[in-house]
Amino acid sequence: MTTISSKIKYKNTMGLAAMQGRGFYYPMDLAFDSSEKIYVLGRGHDGDPRGCRIVVMDMNEEYYGTFGSFGNENGQFIWPSCIAVNSKDNLFISDEATNKITVMSKEGNYISSFGEFGSGNGQFDGPNGLAFDHDDNLYVVDHRNGRVQVFDEDGKFIRKFGKPGDLSGELNLPWGITIDSKNNLYIADWGNHRIQEFSNDGDFIKSIGSYGKKDTDLIHPSDVAVDLKGNVFVTDWGNHRFKAFNQNGDLIYSTRGEATLSKWAHDFLNTNIEEKEARSKSKLVFELPGFDKDPHEESSHVEKYFWSPTSITFYKGEIIIVDSNRHRLPVYLVS
């Protein structure tokens, strides 16, 4: 672990692996509403889709319930990918299997949906990252079409930018997106191992990172967040790390993760005492014996490390990461 900035500190971890009730199964993304409730979007897995749903909680790990499920009906999902909340507290959820964006109320009632497979305006080939600008326009990362499409709040197509490729401004299977205080866009250009910044009109501004395993490198970044100072936070999905860069693109923080037990995890262990005891006698952090230096393998062995983090959110001085393969949400403080 390389810590350069002392301004970023690990705080705590939230969540638990669970397909029902409190917890998540392969969470993919999360979003806050205006009352500070968090909506965590779970994918579940192909063998058991019960984890395909939205869990409502808050930063104190208070659990408020769950809605949404796997299926083809309105308000259901197949491969849900990302979630965003607009200023009216409606939830927008992208589904990369059905090529639809579903709109739901924050109580979980289905409102509408739009999109279908294709490469025309308003059509998608794998909608992923979602973000709203200051006028409530929705930006959708249309990943296999290598572009971003912009919609008004009724789902009406407004404009698009980007094309597939690896030159500056081009996109290769992009995933997450965020919009900063100046309405600039940051996109996790997954296939090109970089973060790209665009103006609101879609003009290329700058790029951070390139393929590699060094701290300053990225491998298949999944998502990006930005704070008010222009610091850029990245989930380095293929390196299984959380990294931060300043606005010049210099690395200021990098960690493999230091997740600890959440409230819900403590509750589980307290009702399953044998596991708690066996766990307390175990050495959960150890010298890594090889694994061909493959960080995916290393993270599969060391529980506190990030394992395929898919989403990162900056919210009121805190960074919340969706640590997908570990079904939890580590939180960092930014000062």
């Binding site: 692996a17 819900w264 995890a265 589980f268 066996a278 006698k281 175990s282 062995h301 393969n325 079904h327």
Partner: peptide
């Protein structure tokens, strides 16, 4: 295997808790 008591207990209890399954090493 490392942590064999905890690992075998997790097998016996089919436990994915708290944070998913863990890989094992010799």
């Amino acid at each position: 295997i490392a942590n064999s008591d905890y690992m075998t207990l997790k097998c016996q209890r089919d436990s994915v808790w708290p944070y998913g399954r863990l890989s094992m090493h010799f």
